[in-house]
Amino acid sequence: MTNPIVETDVVIIGAGPVGLFAVFELGLLDMKCQLIDILDRPGGQCAELYPEKPIYDIPGYPVITGQELTEKLMEQIAPFGAEFHYSRMVTQLEKLGDGSFRTVTDEGEEFHSKVVVIAAGGGSFQPKRPPVNGIENYEEKSVFYSVRKMEAFRGHDLLIVGGGDSALDWTLNLLPLANSVTLVHRRDEFRAAPASVNEMRQKVAEGKMTLLIGQVTELEGENGELSGAQIKTAEGVVAVKADRMLPFFGLTMKLGPVADWGLELNDNLIAVDTEKFESSIPGIFAIGDINYYPGKLKLILSGFHEAALMAQAAKKIVSPDERVIFQYTTSSTKLQKKLGVA
């Protein structure tokens, strides 16, 4: 069954602080938005990299954490009824014959909009690939960065790498199914939940699994089929038999499919003008950390400014015949009605 096509005014790629505030600025001008983000929640870097860290340069907030800022923005944009599509990557973006845009996600959803706003920050968060020679040849065949179906690992010799909750949880969950499990971590301390760490140590003591302190330095196998790995430990190099590997080193940002959409780039950033923050393709705007223009500063507040100007330009595309009057939320009853406060 194919998904119905979602029709909207604006598709926003990225639900970080700047993508969220774009909903506000577009909403004041009566434009409806659909947001798509690779993470499973809003906030972008504020949610994934530093939810608990203080930010000191948001105007009006002497100090606010990434998580708090995200929550405040979600509250601020609530009146505009934007729809969110999480845990999805936009894989295709193309201009249609009538000047509108078709946006497709890796879940097969399709959006049609008059305007697209790319607010993708440093790109999409993807699993960190360990810098081991040739690992890319094994990916999706023997090396996996997530577990979709546990059954797929039944009877296999598993090499799990990492010291956080993902590594420990999957070690314990897959142990009953696997033929063997070897957990590799760089030090004999784990930041995972203490209960999981204790359980893992118990399984090691019972001889049900192996724990090695070190790093994976080499993979062995043919045609993407892993057969073993070399682990560098303090006592020397240890060979491990393994036909499935699960590295858990967290996430990093990759530009990803953005590079394939025919936009003019400047050192992996989308080149925009400073009047409308429009890319080289009219109707596609880029705001926040993902854009480049002379003098660009990668600050959240710069992204907010860019969102406001972008919205004015987007309005002319979405409603070309409508005359837009510039208004303030403080004095305009019309705007206050949209915000649900008048």
Binding site: P130, H185, R187, E189, Q215, V216, F249, G250
Partner: peptide, 10 residues
């Protein structure tokens, strides 16, 4: 140290 855990070549 916790962040270094996420560097596979530490």
């Amino acid at each position: 140290e916790n962040m270094l855990d996420s560097a596979a070549d530490a």
